[in-house]
Simulated assay, not measured.
Amino acid sequence: MPANPKYLTRSKGQRFLKISAAILGGYLVSISFHLALAAWFNKAAIIMTMAFSSSILWVALMVVAFLGKNGFKIWGIYLLLTLIFALTLYLGQTYNPTTK
Rank of each mutant, 00 (worst) to 15 (best):
K69D: 13
K18A: 12
L17T: 06
T82L: 06
L67A: 11
L57I: 14
T9V: 10
P5C: 14
L24P: 00
T9Q: 08
S20I: 04
S55A: 13
Y27W: 02
T82F: 09
V64W: 02
I84D: 01
W75R: 14
L24R: 02
T9R: 10
Y90M: 12
L17V: 04
L67H: 03
H34G: 05
Q14S: 10
Y90K: 12
M62N: 06
L87A: 13
A39D: 13
A65R: 13
T82Y: 04
L83P: 02
Y78A: 09
S32V: 02
T82G: 01
V59N: 04
L87V: 13
Y90W: 15
G76D: 06
I46T: 09
A21W: 01
A86I: 13
L8T: 05
V63H: 14
T9C: 03
P5A: 15
S53Q: 15
A38N: 04
S20P: 00
Y90S: 08
S53I: 15
A60R: 06
L37K: 15
T88R: 03
A39G: 14
Y78E: 11
G76I: 11
I84S: 02
L87R: 05
S54D: 03
L79K: 05
S20E: 00
A86T: 12
A45C: 01
L79S: 07
I47M: 07
A51W: 00
G71S: 07
W40L: 08
L87Y: 04
I23S: 07
Y7S: 14
L8V: 10
T88H: 00
L67C: 11
L81Y: 05
F33T: 07
I56D: 01
N70G: 01
L24H: 01
K18S: 05
Q14K: 08
K12S: 14
G76M: 07
M62P: 04
F33P: 00
S55W: 03
S30I: 05
S20W: 04
K69S: 10
T88V: 11
F52G: 15
L8M: 07
A36P: 03
A22W: 00
M62Y: 08
S11Q: 13
Y27C: 05
Y7G: 15
A51S: 01
T88W: 04
L35W: 00
L35Y: 05
A51L: 03
G26Y: 02
V64H: 03
M62A: 07
S54G: 04
